[in-house]
């Protein structure tokens, strides 16, 4: 369980990224922080592994304040996947994935073996393992990034817009891959995105943020759609334009679901 207790962050120079944020993230679920740029979502994410230290308040993992932990040790115990994958260009794919293990003191041979297993788990051809990151496509690099995040089998996985830089088709593939992985592995995932569709697809708990880390609404995707807290949320999730409005029409005795433009999207079971 991760808990934020009224954290705030003011960066040197006076920029206030987060004003006062509190939230509980249950274990073995995916919490998505979603909002426009400047809402402080990445800052909040990076507080978990002390890439950013809050100016006020506390972040707790299983009731232990992260401020009491050594930042380097803490980071090694948490998986991190970032935009553009953040791979080390001078290491081969397998060595990139093995990095967290090597840092944790695992022997080279064992680290490689486990790295290869992790690559297989995220659906990457073992042939690619000996290549360098620059020889891979954006989608492949992102898979390597996920494999690196998972390789040390951390309880917590932080994902900072991991699929933001790949094209829509590959992004959809990666999203479904993540849903499958999470189904098997049951990690505590903190996921940051600006894409509400991605948030609804991946999140058990979705947190919609306004400027300065102000929470507009917290809830499951269904809860948010059923009762949006205010006009901001209504507009953010697209309820105001009728995009989410579906109707049921009777066709040949079956109930067909139709969207706002009258296009059929499915059949009621």
């Amino acid at each position: 369980m991760i808990e934020y207790r009224s954290v705030a962050k003011t960066f040197p120079g006076g920029a206030e990224a987060v004003r006062d944020f509190s939230l509980v993230l249950p274990s073995r679920t995916t919490t998505v922080l979603v909002g426009s740029s400047g809402c402080g979502k990445t800052t909040l994410l990076r507080m978990v592994n002390r890439m950013v230290d809050p100016s006020r308040g506390q972040v707790l993992i299983d009731d232990v304040d992260v401020a009491t932990r050594n930042p380097v040790e803490l980071r090694r115990s948490i998986g991190y996947v970032m935009q553009h994958a953040g791979l080390l260009p001078h290491r081969t794919v397998v060595d990139n994935v093995a990095t967290p293990l090597r840092l944790g003191g695992v022997a080279r041979r064992e680290a490689r073996t486990r790295a290869l297993e992790a690559l297989e788990r995220v659906g990457l051809d073992p042939v690619l393992a000996r290549r360098y990151p620059t020889q891979l496509s954006g989608g492949q690099q992102q898979r390597v990034g996920v494999a690196r995040g998972l390789v040390a089998d951390p309880n917590i996985l932080l994902m900072d817009e991991p699929f933001g830089a790949v094209d829509p088709i590959v992004r959809a593939e990666l999203q479904h891959e993540l849903v499958r992985l999470q189904h098997d592995l049951g990690k505590t995932i903190v996921f940051v995105t600006h894409d509400i569709e991605e948030a609804f697809l991946l999140g058990d708990q979705v947190v919609i943020l306004k400027k300065g880390g102000e929470v507009a609404q917290v809830g499951s995707p269904a809860e948010i759609l059923a009762s949006p807290a205010d006009d901001f949320v209504r507009s953010f999730v697209g309820l105001d334009r009728g995009r989410r409005t579906l109707r049921i029409e009777e066709v040949d005795g079956r109930q067909v679901v139709v969207d706002a433009d009258g296009r059929a999207t499915g059949v009621l079971a």
């Binding site: 115990s77 970032m82 553009h84 953040g86 080390l88 967290p100 840092l103």
Partner: peptide, 13 residues
């Protein structure tokens, strides 16, 4: 900077 940041996040001292 992104690579250095990534290394920091992976737990490099």
């Amino acid at each position: 900077e992104a690579v250095v940041d990534a290394a920091r996040a992976s737990g490099y001292s």
